[in-house]
């Protein structure tokens, strides 16, 4: 019960805050000093939130598509040769710090949204790829065997058996990617991407804790909501894939 009502309540509060931030000014005033503004006003919080979400959404969708294709390719007979390499590259790639990836994208892409998108995209590939791979390779061997023995073509097996069975894990990969991207996108503001990081950085530069708090809270709350939403999808997909309890 609480698990359903609480997220809805928090989401509602967040929406009210984004639509009318000034009505929350009294709440944030204790965190300001010397009469500094309690609510970030340079850019509308709603616009920053939407831009933040758009960057994350584009990056997550792009990395999901590419990672899916790559994972399918390396698990086909013709791509098997790449599978061990792909695993190594994925595990090594995940040790690359997202901030460093972002910083390295700047010399190539310049400042702005582009390097952030590219960094989020590259970093987001790994969880989806890893999970899709686990989903495609971890299926019960007798199921694959049955599909083959019943005369499914390779394509039919992929679409009718392998991908539906891997869906819960694919979604879990997307959840990881989305939640990591929500946080990493804030750092994008250090290279001038339009994200909620702008609010936090403004707070850091002017020692205005209220800004830091409101930026961090909006990002954190949305991340938690995304997390919950994906978990709902995952358990639904798991039930549909016959893995439910």
């Amino acid at each position: 019960m609480i698990g359903r009502v609480l997220p809805a309540l928090v989401a509602g509060l967040l929406l009210i805050f984004l639509l009318s931030p000034d009505s929350f000014a009294p709440l944030f005033r204790p965190f300001t000093r010397n009469g500094a503004p309690p609510i970030y006003g340079q850019t509308s919080l709603l616009a920053l939130t939407l831009s933040h979400l758009a960057i994350v959404a584009v990056a997550v969708i792009a990395s999901t598509l590419v990672a899916l294709v790559l994972a399918v390719l390396v698990t086909r007979p013709s791509g098997r040769e790449f599978l061990p390499l792909a695993r190594t590259v994925t595990s090594v790639g995940q040790t690359f710090p997202p901030v460093a990836v972002l910083a390295l994208a700047v010399p190539v892409m310049g400042f702005g949204t582009a390097p952030t998108l590219v960094a989020l995209f590259l970093y987001g590939l790994l969880p989806v790829f890893e999970n899709t791979l686990a989903g495609l390779t971890g299926q019960p061997p007798e199921v694959a065997e049955a599909a083959r023995a019943m005369g499914m073509t390779d394509r039919q097996r992929l679409w009718q058996v392998e991908l539906p069975l891997a869906l819960p894990l694919i979604l879990a990969g997307m959840r990881l990617t989305a939640v990591i991207s929500m946080g990493t996108a804030t750092i994008g503001s250090t290279v001038a991407a339009k994200t909620l990081g702008e609010v936090i950085i403004a707070g850091l530069l002017s020692s205005n804790t209220a800004f830091v708090l409101q930026g961090g809270m909006v990002v954190g709350i949305i991340a938690v909501q995304i997390h919950h939403l994906f978990q709902r999808f995952e358990s639904r997909a798991a039930r549909a894939a016959g893995q439910g309890v």
């Binding site: 965190f31 939640v179 929500m182 946080g183 804030t186 750092i187 503001s189 909620l196 990081g197 936090i200 950085i201 707070g203 850091l204 020692s207 804790t209 830091v212 708090l213 930026g215 961090g216 809270m217 990002v219 954190g220 991340a223 938690v224 997390h227």
Partner: peptide, 17 residues
């Protein structure tokens, strides 16, 4: 888990005050 979702930038920032 909730701590993990706080963006690093904000968590670092909040620690100062």
């Amino acid at each position: 888990n909730i701590v993990q979702t706080i963006p690093s930038l904000a968590l670092f920032g909040i620690m100062i005050p």
